[in-house]
Amino acid sequence: MATWLITGCSTGLGRALAAAVLARGDNAVVTARDVATVADLADAHPGTALPLTLDVTDEIQIATAVASATERFGGIDVLVNNAGYGYRAAVEEGDESDVQELFATHFFGPVALIKAVLPAMRARRSGTIVNLSSIGARLSPAGSGYYAAVKSAVEGMTASLRKEVEPLGITALAIEPGGFRTDFAGRSLAQSAEAIPDYADTAGRRRKENDRVHGTQPGDPAKAALAIIAVVDAPDAPELLVLGSDAVAAYRSVLEGQLASLDAWRQLSESTDIDV
C-alpha cells in the first residue's frame, strides 16, 4: 500500500487520479484550495483518504500538509504536482502579476513540495515524484507563451532532478497530457484582461470567447489516471510520459520539424567551432 500526495484534486486529472488511487486501496492525501470539494472522496474512503487544504503557493500550508501526511500514514511514497490552471495571452498582453502567479502555482509551488518530501524519500532511498506538464510545452501555441514557458521550466527541472535522485532510489518524471475532457479549457482557464487588436488572428483566436475546444477534447481523465498509476508502478518509468493520441501525434510532428530544421542549418551551426 503506497501513500500518494496529490495536489489539485477538486476537478480534472487530479480528482480522477485521487479516485483511482483510492479505489485500488492505496492511501491518498487529497488536497485542494477548498477542502470541501474533496470531502466526498474522503467520506467514501475514511481509512485511506486524508483531505487537506493546500494552496501550493503557501509554504506554510505545504509544510503542514507534508507533516500531516507523515503523521497519518508514516510517509509519502508518491508526490503528484498536478494543481494548476491555463493562462492565455499574447506575450505583449500578459499582465506581470498574472504571470508571476502562474509561475508561483506551476513552478515554485511544485519545487517547494519537492523540497518538502525529498528528505524523507532520501532517508528511505525510495519514492516517486510526478510533475504534470502539458503538450503546450512542446507546441508553444500563439497565445500560450507564458503557459508554455512555465511548463517547459517544469520539464527542464524534472529532467535534472531525475538525474540527481535516481542514484538514491527515487524516480522523477513529467507527464505531458494533450486535451482531456476536464475544466481546464473552461472554468480553469484564465486570460489577460487586455486584448490587443493586432493579435486577433493569432493569440486572439484562442481567447475564451473565441475558443470552442472545451467539451470536445479527446482524452478521458479516468483513463489518464490509470496510465499515471501504471507508469508510477513501472520499474522502468520514462523521463517523460505523453498522454493522449493527440499529444503523441503533436509531439512526433514537432520532433520531426525540429530535426529537419537542425539538418537544414547544420552547416552554419557547425561552422562556429574553433579552427584547428
Rank of each mutant, 00 (worst) to 15 (best):
A153H: 00
S97R: 14
S97E: 14
G14L: 11
D275N: 12
E176M: 10
D55C: 13
M121N: 01
S253N: 12
A153M: 04
Q61I: 00
V213Q: 14
M157D: 07
P119D: 05
G84A: 00
V99K: 05
E96K: 14
T37R: 14
T11N: 02
L22H: 01
A67D: 15
A42Q: 12
G156F: 11
H214G: 05
R15C: 10
T182Y: 09
N27L: 01
L13N: 08
L226S: 05
P197Q: 07
S261H: 13
P221S: 08
A200Q: 14
D246M: 06
D58I: 05
I76W: 07
D55A: 08
L50Q: 04
E93L: 12
P197L: 09
L240V: 13
I229D: 00
V21W: 02
L79R: 07
R125H: 13
S68K: 09
P218L: 07
E166A: 15
N27Q: 09
A234T: 04
K163I: 13
G257K: 05
E93V: 02
T128K: 06
A39F: 03
G47E: 12
I228A: 05
L240E: 12
D98V: 14
D34V: 02
A32N: 05
L22K: 02
P197E: 10
A67M: 06
G156E: 09
M121T: 00
A65W: 06
L113M: 07
P51G: 06
S245F: 04
K163H: 15
